[in-house]
Design a protein around this nucleic acid. Structure first.
Length: 762
DNA sequence: GGTCGCACTTAGAAGTGATCCA
DNA sequence: TGGATCACTTCTAAGTGCGACC
């Protein structure tokens, strides 16, 4: 079968990974040293491959890497770069307009021009007075894969829904007496009553095919961070043992540090250095001359004050808490929704990020820098011309109001740490996100149809005369087999040193002709996204192994493993193999196909619902391991395991006691032979059975928790697993969908829940 | 053809609040 | 009833990949 690519052997069972925030030597890197052997290398390759295509690429790479050599220029360059970016953005905004000719957009299978249809009014809609015309769109008939299923009649649908609810009830009834956890089915039923009956089924409608994302967009703009509230006068900051009254801007930045005092960050040298540098920029000249050493600063009183405040918040009365809740709800109702093409849609993040200290992951060179406060003057608003534009706070103005319907964001601003753009976008349950998600899984399903051909091709390419093709083929093999990320090149000194497949360096792999009884083993050990360690030992095919040996020849540890390859070359090649194919599609495909296979393998028809859910979680876990989705073990992990073990021990004692009682009851019954003692035996028997079941449950829970210690299931569930596989599985085995997806997840995957039947095949 | 900016997805951590249990 | 625990939500960093531009 196309989907089977040995994942189970290579990673699913790989128990050797460790979650370890990767500590990185500051090896990275003297660029000249890094490439000092390239000339030699190139000559070697020339003689081996008699290939001319490869030769310029490494030179180019070399040139690029040298260009930021002078660290002293970085800040100026950064400033200039930001200015440059801003300028370009401004120019772009001038030229970008909904009225302009739409640029060609490649949308897999989205190909026909839109046509506005009339749509009946509904409570779900939220009309703008300026926008009365309806915006239903037309679908292309050729669009087979993404074609929504035939719309059922209302009666059919209701009957089916009722039937489903009845079926679910059957499952739910016996467990109703037991715990009714949040997100559990009982709860879900209660909540379902509150949810509006009819949700907008965007997946049954036509899609835009001209590259536009919307025709009408209206929103209230962002919610800004609350202004800084100065500390009470009795809370002091001390320098060198003496109290120092700070100016308000300096005090505000000091509080950012004080709030993080308990965090490991504040012990890190880079963090402290960056913080102090940026803090000084906020100080008055007098403060600057007085406060010269961070080690002499004492933030303890501030820190205690914030801790006390946090404690006080926890201790607030019910009424006070309720008041805050209501206020939050009011803000949500006002700012948390927008109107996009006649539908009220939830916004994902409508609050502007508050100022604070930058928390980069891993050994981030910029950690501790001051994330400045974002003001209305930094904000670009995106909405439609004919909408009611959001108003800036009194006395301020927006940087710009733009009407670009080729993008999905509502608000954007440029952050000051990396100079990148931040956005306010819609919630995952929105049409715009859902369509994209659906499309992603359809692309992955198309890969399924041609993956055998692609695999045959890259295996063939392992023998190519051209080094660049061999490298491409080996890299693709890793991306496919190990679900590695593409590995874009990164600007040095700007971010933590992390890599993906194409950016692997020699130091990240070790080759073993034989290891633990296996031939041709490759050991990977590198910091991946978010500086999460990827550690894996896998046996590979001989030809891959030989190729890797060749790639490593005459290279230094800090040299690129694939020096003839980058993500752009790889993706260009993939695009030729299949329309819309990129490196990340392999991750989606392999994750989804693994889930489907594992579910088939692990689900036993005779199992009860909890056992089936355990099987589902195990299948999900197999994918999480494949994708290396790790988490730091919860701080309370050891303790909670200990508590669970105590419970298990107590339950075991209880079981022994119950068994003893049963034995003695049996003995009594033997002697007395009356109804009363017989009944007592039955009661004791039942008690033993019940305790045995409880014990088993606790033991399963312990196993599950232990297996999940360092594995995060959520990421794969939300981003890589085609939800239709899970929905079909639930329908097939009568498992309530609420057991697999919580409310938010059900909203995100509403399209899949509605359209997938039990016989859906990825 | 390469570089860079932009738009968007993917990611783990932190924060919050509901539920459990002594 | 209140503290502990855990599921869920929010936050925002860190990736990918496309396309404009030089």
């Amino acid at each position: 079968m196309s989907g089977d690519h040995g994942h189970k052997d290579s990673q699913v069972d790989s128990g050797s990974r460790v979650n370890d925030s990767h500590k990185h030597k500051d090896k990275h890197k003297d660029k000249e040293r890094k490439h000092k052997d390239h000339k030699k290398d190139k000559e070697r390759e020339k003689s081996k491959c008699s290939n001319s295509e490869y030769k310029d690429f490494s030179e180019k790479k070399h040139k690029d890497k040298v260009k930021h050599k002078d660290g002293s220029l970085e800040r100026h360059k950064e400033k200039d770069k930001h200015k440059d970016k801003e300028k370009r953005r401004e120019e772009k905004s001038k030229s970008s307009s909904v009225d302009g000719k739409p640029k060609k957009e490649k949308e897999n299978g989205f190909a026909s021009p839109p046509r506005i249809k009339s749509e009946p009014d509904s409570d779900d809609f939220y009309h703008s007075p300026k926008h009365e015309k309806s915006l239903k769109r037309e679908r292309d008939d050729d669009d087979y894969e993404l074609k929504p299923k035939k719309i059922k009649t209302e009666n059919e649908k209701k009957a089916k829904k009722r039937k489903q609810e009845e079926d679910e009830d059957e499952d739910i009834k016996p467990r109703k007496k037991t715990k009714d956890k949040k997100g559990g089915e009982g709860d879900a039923k209660k909540k379902a009553k509150k949810e509006p009956e009819e949700k907008w089924k965007w997946w049954e409608e036509e899609r835009y095919t001209d590259g536009s994302k919307w025709k009408f967009l209206e929103h209230k703009g962002p919610v800004f961070a609350p202004p800084y509230e100065p500390l009470p006068s009795n809370i002091k900051f001390y320098y060198d043992g003496k109290p120092v009254k700070l100016s308000t801007p300096a005090e505000e930045v000091a509080t950012f540090f004080a709030k993080m005092l308990d965090h490991e960050y504040t012990t890190k040298d880079i963090f402290r250095k960056n913080f102090f540098k940026d803090w000084k920029k906020e100080m008055t000249s007098e403060e600057k001359s007085k406060i010269t050493d961070l080690n002499k600063c004492n933030f303890a009183e501030m820190s205690e004050y914030f801790q006390a405040q946090s404690e006080a918040r926890k201790q607030m009365s019910k009424e006070e808490k309720q008041k805050i809740k209501e206020e939050n709800e009011r803000v949500l109702q006002e700012y948390g929704f927008c109107v996009m093409d006649n539908h009220k849609e939830r916004i994902g993040n409508f609050r502007i990020e508050p100022p604070g200290l930058f928390r980069g992951r891993g050994d981030h060179p910029k950690m501790g820098m001051l994330k400045r406060r974002i003001r209305p003057e930094d904000i670009i608003i995106n909405c439609s011309k004919d909408s009611k534009h959001p108003k800036p706070p009194p006395g301020t103005k927006w940087k710009e109001v733009r009407h670009d319907n080729k993008v999905t964001w509502l608000v954007s601003w440029t952050e000051n740490i990396q100079g990148s753009i931040k956005y306010i976008m819609l919630n995952p349950s929105s049409r715009i996100k859902g369509e994209k998600d659906w499309q992603k899984y359809e692309t992955a399903r198309r890969l399924k149809k041609c993956v055998d051909r692609i695999r045959a091709q890259y295996r063939d390419d392992w023998k190519s005369k051209e080094m660049r093709i061999r490298q491409r083929a080996v890299a693709l093999y890793f991306i496919d087999k190990l679900a590695l990320r593409a590995g874009n090149e990164k600007e040095e000194g700007e971010t933590a040193d992390t890599v993906g497949c194409c950016s692997l360096r020699v130091e990240h792999i070790k080759l073993y002709p034989e290891l633990d009884g296996q031939e041709f083993v490759v050991e990977f050990d590198f910091p991946g996204k978010d500086s999460i360690r990827y550690y894996n030992k896998i046996p590979v095919e001989k030809r891959v192994f030989k190729n890797l040996q060749l790639f490593l020849e005459n290279k230094q540890p800090e040299d690129d493993l694939f020096d003839r390859l980058n993500t752009s070359i790889l993706n260009k090649h993939l695009q030729e193999l299949m329309d819309g194919l990129t490196a990340k599609v392999f991750r989606t495909y392999n994750a989804s196909i693994t889930l489907q296979q594992q579910l088939k393998e692990l689900t036993s028809p005779e199992e009860n619902i909890p056992a089936k859910i355990l099987s589902y979680n195990r299948a999900n876990r197999a994918v999480a391991i494949l994708c290396n989705h790790q988490r730091a073990p919860p701080k309370t992990f050891e303790k909670s395991m200990q508590n669970l073990q105590t419970k298990i021990d107590a339950k075991k004692d209880q079981l022994s006691e119950a068994r003893r009682e049963l034995k003695s009851a049996k003995a009594d019954a033997k002697v007395q032979k009356d109804e009363k003692t017989k009944k007592a035996v039955e009661t004791k028997k039942k008690a033993v059975q019940r305790i045995e079941e409880q014990l088993m449950k606790l033991e399963v829970q312990a196993t599950d928790r232990e297996e999940n210690k360092q594995i995060a299931l959520g990421t794969s569930k939300l981003n890589y697993l085609d939800p239709r596989i899970s929905v079909a599985w639930c329908k097939k085995w009568n498992v309530p969908i609420e057991k697999i997806y919580n409310k938010t997840q059900r909203e995100k995957f509403a399209w899949a829940i509605d359209m997938a039947d039990e016989d859906f095949e990825f």
